[in-house]
Amino acid sequence: MRLGLVGYGVGGRFFHAPFVEAAEGVELAGIVTRSPHRRDLAAQDWPGVPAYDSLTDLLASGVDAVTITTPPETRRALVLEAVAAGVHVVADKPFAPSAEAARELVRAAVDAGVVLDVFHNRRWDADLRTLAAVLASGRLGELWRVHSRFDLDQPHLLEPGPDGGLLRDLGSHLVDQLLWLLGPVESVTAHLDWVDLPEGRTDAGFVIDLLHSSGVRSFVESSKLNRLHQRELRAYGSAGSYRVHSTDVQAGAVLGGARPAGDLEGWGRDAPAHWGTLAIKAGEERVPSEQGRYHDFYTQFAAAVRGDAPEPVPAAEGVRTLAVLDAARASALEGRTVPIEPAT
């Protein structure tokens, strides 16, 4: 599958291109960026891969699929242009400002007969995959609740203004992880921390309480301005608990210049010092890290386009995540618990 990358900022350069390279059945066929500096970076990173000024030019070159990783406010028009051209699309998160806006993109893709998926790559995080394996083992007994905390000391990277904020940014990933892990949500109760910036009032932290249809509760929280850097997952069940303070191992590696294609077997595993602990009646034991594999998203996406596998993150699941984010914002602004309508 020949795939073009639209946008070569931090996301395109570090969180898409290296994982496209590592995926099976995918070729990086072109990069869209107008910035001379980013064109130079792309040429250094991917010699021989052509650069284009626009999505229109990339489509004219002949590609099977595109990834849209431009700023959020630009994505709708680009997704619609690619879909209208009959090209399959990966849209970065959040792929729309609201669930209702996202449904328009889903309808367009269905009408065009193309695959539209959302890049919720953090479903393939090492710590989340390890927690999923612990839950699947049944050793916690009846699962009661899961806590997910991700604090970042990155004030300079907070997307400002009413169309930005941490909830739509990292919140998209953290909520999607819990939906993937625990299933649909029936209600949402949330608190947002606000900061006044020149671009407008911006949410800079959140705490969200999710009641899942299974009866399990999950709690997700994050901050970006509080001078903390911590990733923690905890799970409580009738037979014990599991806890881990992990590292963002894949992000750290690619930002440090590593590529998964250079060591596919050794890629994406937390070091033993960061393994989680399972505590049950028999005692405590360390749980080795599962492998984090963001490139599996693209391998599965290519297989889905061929008709050989399910889509990795269908756009309808992206809509489900956005519906929870919409409810969280409403809950925080109105001071109430917001029910979630079942997906249709």
Rank of each mutant, 00 (worst) to 15 (best):
S222T: 14
E27K: 10
D193P: 00
A133L: 11
L55E: 06
R149Q: 09
G257S: 13
S241G: 14
L211N: 12
D209Q: 05
L179E: 12
L170G: 01
H274K: 06
D193V: 10
G165Q: 13
L178S: 02
V63L: 05
R286F: 02
D326H: 12
D193M: 02
H147D: 14
D53H: 06
H37E: 15
F206W: 10
D263F: 08
D64L: 04
A303K: 09
L178F: 03
V175W: 07
W180N: 06
F95W: 13
V188K: 07
L192W: 09
L179C: 07
G12E: 01
V63E: 03
G183L: 11
A23Y: 12
T69Q: 11
A273F: 03
L228F: 08
V90G: 07
V338D: 08
R38S: 12
G165F: 14
F119W: 15
L167K: 06
D163N: 14
L158I: 15
V195S: 14
D127C: 07
G7V: 14
L157Y: 13
I280V: 15
A235E: 03
S241F: 08
R217Y: 08
L233A: 03
H274T: 01
A60R: 13
A304F: 07
V90L: 12
P312Q: 01
G48Q: 05
A60D: 11
M1H: 05
V10A: 15
A43K: 11
G268A: 14
G307L: 01
D127T: 06
R231C: 05
G240Y: 08
A239P: 00
A77K: 06
F15D: 08
I31R: 02
Q177I: 13
D57Y: 00
P155Q: 08
L322V: 12
S213N: 01
D308C: 02
P36D: 10
W46F: 11
E199M: 11
G335Y: 09
D117L: 00
E24P: 00
S172M: 12
R107Y: 01
D326S: 12
G276W: 04
A22C: 11
G4T: 09
L55D: 07
H295W: 15
F301Y: 12
A279W: 07
A261T: 03
A273P: 01
G86A: 04
A316D: 04
I340E: 02
V32L: 03
S218V: 11
A302Y: 02
K281Y: 05
L143M: 13
V185F: 08
A51L: 14
D196G: 08
A204H: 09
E341Y: 00
A82E: 02
A65K: 00
A330F: 02
F301N: 01
G205R: 01
A279D: 15
E334D: 14
T69A: 15
L41R: 13
A133C: 07
R243Q: 13
A239F: 02
G240W: 09
A136R: 15
A136E: 15
K93L: 10
A304S: 13
R107F: 01
A330M: 06
K93F: 11
A239G: 02
L179R: 14
V115A: 09
V26W: 07
E265H: 07
A279R: 15
A304P: 04
V90T: 12
A99W: 12
W124M: 13
S137P: 04
V244E: 09
G164P: 14
G30L: 07
T202V: 06
G292N: 06
L58R: 04
D248R: 09
